[in-house]
Design a protein around this nucleic acid. Structure first.
Lengths: 153, 153
DNA sequence: AATTAGTAGTTGCGTTTGCAACGAAGAACG
DNA sequence: CGTTCTTCGTTGCAAACGCAACTACTAATT
């Protein structure tokens, strides 16, 4: 059996899966006590919120690519720990807006360095062009997959 | 807050995570009834076995990048469904070798086309060179992360 | 205005997951 | 040999996950 038959699969479907999981756990390992009780879903949510505060819960579902229920419970957890608050949108009360508390904003300063250190160390020696191309390919895959996903729901 | 601060993170740690998950579920969606009861871990295990039959259980743990227990239970499931068998290695009876049954080998023919179709469709319009670079970067990341992971266990 | 359809979020349920503690088998050392 | 150390696999447990059913609210149609 030829290995070539598997290369696209092996290299992309499963490599992305595995690299993604390893990166998350590497970041957690580095952050250690700083992220006590925070798991990869929480970190994913926080990264989005650090980027833009006040997102709707549904935005997080789309972006983190997990189930509504999973996100709802992750937010329960973050809210219970005083890291975010949920506020109903005045214009459309179906929506809830998620805001970082001061504690949530502080967490950014403690965690982000670990996350950046992890990524930088892993990418050391790889040229910026190559990294840029890799990102571009992944972004494209992401875009198409999330479209075709919505079509089939 | 500058977005640049997030780019490496957003693009790699989380993109890989999300693309990986989307790809798995896309493959499952395409395969439909053919993969009744098979989840992403099972598919990951099977892809490895299709590539090389008779792997040790530990090899799968390393390659699929999940916990020992997770793999043990995934194999319980696959064995119960008559897709693989576990045989103790005669030379070192701590090891168990995992072999595909005829049913497991047949499954390859039904599932692999779906998996390949998914990947090919998602990559359409992206040049082979770019895909190759993307793979190279991911492989490198994978290698480093799995090393640093073992060091810290 | 009333009915219908659609969207956002919550909750119950069964499965999967990672962690940690355990047992079994071999390796290394005296 | 016998003891200790390591490696591979299993199992208990609690947390996280996806799915599906449900509620609350809004939009569209009549």
């Amino acid at each position: 059996m030829s290995d070539n038959q598997f290369n696209p699969l092996e290299s992309l479907a499963f490599l992305t899966n595995r690299v993604g999981r390893l990166l998350s756990s590497d970041i957690r390992r580095r952050a250690g006590d700083d992220v006590e009780g925070l798991y990869s879903t929480h970190i994913g949510v926080l990264v989005d919120l650090w980027k833009q505060d006040g997102l709707r819960q549904q935005d997080l579902v789309t972006s983190v690519v997990k189930d509504k229920g999973t996100i709802a419970r992750a937010l329960d957890n973050l809210e219970k720990n005083g890291i975010v608050v949920r506020l109903a949108d005045a214009r459309d009360r179906r929506n809830k807006r998620i805001y970082l508390t001061p504690k949530g904003k502080t967490l950014k300063d403690t965690m982000l360095p670990h996350a950046l250190a992890s990524v930088n160390e892993v990418l050391e020696g790889i040229s910026e062009e190559e990294v840029a191309i890799c990102k571009k390919v992944l972004r494209r895959m992401y875009k198409r997959l999330s479209h075709s996903r919505q079509e089939h729901l």
